[in-house]
């Protein structure tokens, strides 16, 4: 059916000329009490960590870049994966982890195939305290498949990237994207892949990663 006719039918059912714009609307987005909460950096980070861990996500808090590099290296040693993949060099990495990626011979997105990697390493755009969520805005060198296909997802992030609500994260996404041009793919991830489809028995690692480990660098709310 042609678009104009389809929309005209809806308008006519609603008893209006087609295309008439809605008037002002009072209830947009979350209720005021939710939008107007004031929280400190420390509270946000603590809530984010607690929620993310409650969803079986893992958090490794690091007090310096050197400590984060060491922790990432340790994690890879423990996993000892046959193959490692990572975002490309020009992706928006919140922390420079090139040294560890080189050491482990990570396949870089955009240069080498990543569809069969065992461990994927990425950055993130935001952490969300309310839901224990990491937000990955994908594009260019920040490929989608790097964190979707492996069994283990390692993500590096700074504390200053933690926002309170999903709405805060969405508003920030809108600020950096011109209207109608959000990244083609933004992924809000809250812990490992899970399913309860077999006799209600909850299990992880169904299609996505079975482990998600977030390496969180301490910094101030003012950002790096």
């Amino acid at each position: 059916m042609d678009k104009t006719a389809f929309l005209a039918n809806i308008a006519s059912r609603l008893g209006r000329p087609p295309g008439s714009a809605p008037g002002r609307r009072d209830a947009i987005g979350v209720p005021d009490f939710w939008a107007h909460r004031r929280t400190s950096h420390e509270e946000r980070v603590a809530t984010f960590c607690a929620r993310f861990q409650a969803l079986a996500g893992e958090i490794v808090r690091c007090d310096s870049e050197a400590a984060l590099l060491a922790a990432l290296d340790e994690a890879l040693k423990a996993l000892n994966p046959p193959s490692v993949g990572a975002w490309g060099k020009h992706a928006p990495w919140p922390v420079n982890v090139e040294k560890v990626l080189e050491k482990w011979g990570a396949r870089r997105f955009g240069e080498q195939p990543v569809l069969d990697i065992d461990v994927g390493i990425t950055g993130a755009s935001f952490g969300v305290a309310d839901t224990g969520t990491i937000v990955l805005a994908c594009g260019d060198a920040a490929g989608r498949t790097v964190h979707q296909v492996p069994l283990v997802h390692l993500v590096v992030m700074r504390e200053s990237q933690v926002v309170q609500s999903l709405g805060d994260a969405m508003a920030r996404l809108r600020e950096v994207a011109p209207i109608g041009h959000l990244p083609a793919y933004v992924h809000f991830i809250s812990g490992p892949s899970r399913s309860s489809d077999i006799e209600n028995d909850q299990t992880i690692g169904v299609h996505g990663p079975a482990r998600v480990i977030c390496f969180l660098l301490q910094d101030s709310a003012d950002g790096p």
Binding site: T131, Y185, V186
Partner: peptide, 12 residues
């Protein structure tokens, strides 16, 4: 409390 994956797809 939250869904595990919320994917926001904006075009190809």
């Amino acid at each position: 409390n939250t869904i595990t994956y919320l994917s926001l797809i904006t075009g190809p």
